[in-house]
Design a binder for these strands. Structure first.
Lengths: 188, 188
DNA sequence: TTTTTATGTCAGCCATGTTGACTTATCTAA
DNA sequence: TTAGATAAGTCAACATGGCTGACATAAAAA
């Protein structure tokens, strides 16, 4: 591998390569969301509902502030979908124990089932792409995407050794959950 | 490396890993678009304008049908932004030479300059992520994203050897370009 | 007790996607 | 040469999901 510092513009940083990356992200994300969107339509829900259900499922007991931090939308925008999901029995809110102003969010059984169905679409798609690309490519995929992410949110992901290729499978376990992040302490 | 066929559920295909991939895509795309959106706001344009400008810049002389195929939106949706861009002098339309029903699209100088400014934001972001991750990770990134993309659109990308893991770094270079895709011949 | 914070709500605006119906110009095939 | 298909555009109406601004309530913190 060439020493990056000594090369002003390595081949993989040429304009064409970067544009290709931009387009891969566009097409990739477009198709990544397309499948789940169909499932959502059957419930008369949109992508915004999916995101709420997904992250609440991932972080049971999270606060509204936590969710806002993740989604980076206004509370008015969130309110529209969240209150709908609560009204229709997909999500429950209970007051926080230490801070009773908080509304801790979690999925109902009904919500958990929807979450499963929704996430299944994307998981299958990602699994297929992972399988086709191989373990090592997956490491690279994660590494690059992590680099695209806002410094502040990067901490949501606990990545193991970037050591790469042959990293001993036995230790890959750990972390797992990773994205938990949003502690209920939620300051802003 | 374990033989995938013999392992029912390799480590990199565990549920946690797949969810992490889903989240990386969400956060990655969110931040990938955030920067350019700010630039767009200064022109009173939105993401839809950006996409049109980007792809027309990338494929000068493309037809409206070509563009619709890429964006996968309705012509009514496209019309709203496209006619605005034409009206304001960012894009020109000229009749097709062989088929005069077609309106071949290209950027004006003004449009090209905007395209440069817009794409610069994303290119810088991608470049930073690429640089931090390294050439080999970039290969993996591309490989996985390509696997997420609709079979039909995959052909827009001419990837070099999927050679995989230990592929000699010296040869990582290759092709580059690629993504042109939408030839103006545009059949549907 | 006063102030700040966490949450929610009403009202209205904007961007961007959708469907359906219809027009115009042009190409293509019978 | 005419009938039908195709490329493009338009009007109208609607849904989703962002946004701002203003204001309300309860509970924590100073």
């Amino acid at each position: 591998m060439p020493d990056l510092k000594s090369v002003p513009n390595p081949l993989f940083l040429r304009d064409d390569e970067l544009r290709q990356g931009i387009e891969l992200l566009f097409f990739g994300y477009r198709d990544f969301t397309a499948r789940a969107d169909q499932t959502l339509a059957a419930y008369n829900f949109g992508r915004a509902h999916h995101r709420v259900i997904y992250f609440v499922g991932r972080n049971p007991g999270m606060t509204v502030s936590d969710l806002l931090d993740i989604l980076k939308i206004t509370k008015q925008s969130l309110s529209r979908v969240l209150s709908q999901l609560v009204r229709e029995g997909f999500i429950v809110q209970r007051p926080g124990t230490t801070d009773r102003r908080q509304r801790l969010l979690s999925l109902t059984d009904k919500g958990a089932e929807l979450e499963r169905r929704l996430t299944e679409d994307q998981r299958a798609l990602v699994a297929r792409a992972y399988k086709a690309a191989g373990a090592e490519a997956v490491e690279g995929f994660k590494k690059v995407l992590l680099g695209l992410i806002n410094e502040e949110d990067r901490g949501r992901f606990r990545m193991q050794n970037p050591g790469g290729p042959g990293s001993s499978p036995g230790t890959t376990s750990g972390s797992g959950g990773g994205a938990g992040g949003a502690g209920s302490g939620g300051s802003r």
